[in-house]
């Protein structure tokens, strides 16, 4: 072997870093685990990262409806909306997502397709969160059309490892079709025992939090949503509020936040219903559903049979709130959750 001089060492080092770097980039481009260069195979793909692969879905699919939300929205299948609304739908969900992230993804969707309708799972817990504490985890280099940003995808440790993971899973035949992507029915089970088992009942707090305790955060988050409504006034926005279980209201009661949460819902309805291009579908008052804990995996996440029924009912508008009547609906909910005999939940299990 020839002696390694400084000159030869430097040349070899540069050549190897460049060569191996290009090899890594080529491997990522070929496998393309985040669907940046090719559309996913609808019959079988490896799904593992909603934020990274969401960009690929928005970029490569053809759609006029965007279905979007947090983990509560993940348990829907896009083709339900294709059927119920006679449309083409892409589903993009970000667990614990922030409104800034959803806004960025929406902007990207508008830059990719002619979006006519947005169906958005509006999660009151996320509305109540301080925007400063919300995550910002979208891989930005995937959510734009700048080809120079692709370098951050191609020369990326995560993407490289995910490429290897994708190849391994495909070799093992462990793939899912696109409709099952990120759906947790099948991986997660729903029963009264599981819902109660994962619920830590808080100690009772007094006094109650003031009714405006959550309003500042709610208004800050809603202002982001209002930006979407004003920027895309031709788009039909269908917001829906998922049926949190009665355990959620038990938590609100015991932590003294019932009035604050109801005020948040009222603020949300008042703000959004002022827009002509908005529908607000409200499932929190589906009392049969929320009191039947067999529908839940925990105090929030609801089974596929319920999400299917909700999706089916959306086009009928039967759960829509209206400017004239939303206060009555919320008053009715207040009466229900304030007067509910929460001890019954545990007595039933005894």
């Amino acid at each position: 072997m020839r002696r390694l001089t400084c000159r030869r060492w430097a040349a070899l080092a540069l050549a190897l870093v460049c060569g191996l770097g290009m090899l890594c980039a080529a491997a990522v481009a070929a496998v393309d685990p985040f669907f940046h260069y090719h559309a996913p195979d609808p019959e079988g793909e490896v799904w593992f990262d909603q934020r990274a692969q969401g960009a690929g879905l928005l970029r490569t699919q053809e759609y006029e409806t965007v279905f979007m939300g947090s983990s509560l929205a993940a348990n829907y299948r896009a083709f339900w909306f294709d059927v119920f609304y006679d449309t083409t739908t892409v589903k993009v969900t970000f667990p614990n997502g922030s409104f800034a992230e959803f806004g960025q993804a929406l902007d990207y969707a508008y830059s990719c397709q002619d979006v006519r309708r947005v169906i958005f799972g509006l999660d009151p817990n996320l509305l109540a969160r301080d925007p400063a504490e919300a995550p910002s985890q979208l891989p930005e280099y995937l959510y734009d059309h700048n080809p120079f940003n692709d370098i951050a995808y191609l020369l990326n440790k995560d993407a490289l490892m995910r490429s290897a993971y994708t190849v391994m899973k495909k070799d093992a035949g462990e793939v899912q079709n696109i409709q099952d992507a990120f759906v947790w029915d099948g991986n997660v089970f729903f029963s009264r025992e599981l819902a109660l088992g994962s619920y830590e009942r808080p100690e009772t707090v007094s006094p109650m939090a003031p009714a405006d305790a959550l309003l500042e955060n709610c208004r800050a988050n809603l202002s982001v949503v209002q930006g979407w409504l004003e920027a895309h006034s031709d788009t039909e926005f269908i917001f829906y509020i998922s049926p949190y279980s009665i355990l959620f209201w038990d938590k609100m009661q015991r932590t003294g936040q019932t009035e604050a949460m109801l005020a948040l819902l009222e603020e949300t309805a008042r703000t959004l219903l002022a827009y002509d291009n908005v529908q607000l579908q409200f499932f929190m008052n589906d009392y049969d559903t929320i009191t039947d804990l067999d529908n839940y995996a925990d105090h929030l996440h609801v089974a596929g049979r319920v999400t299917y029924a909700m999706a089916q009912s959306m086009p009928t508008g039967e759960h829509c709130l209206h400017l004239e009547s939303y206060r009555e609906v919320l008053d009715d909910l207040r009466q229900f959750v304030v007067n509910y005999d929460y001890e019954r939940i545990w007595a039933q299990g005894a």
């Binding site: 390694l4 400084c6 060492w9 430097a10 080092a13 190897l16 770097g21 020369l155 995560d158």
Partner: peptide
């Protein structure tokens, strides 16, 4: 300029560059 340093230098550089994001 040893072969071991070449191995570590290239390995560390590549791993670091792939981790820059």
């Amino acid at each position: 300029p040893t072969a071991a340093r070449l191995f570590w230098g290239v390995g560390i550089s590549l791993w670091s560059l792939l981790s820059l994001s």
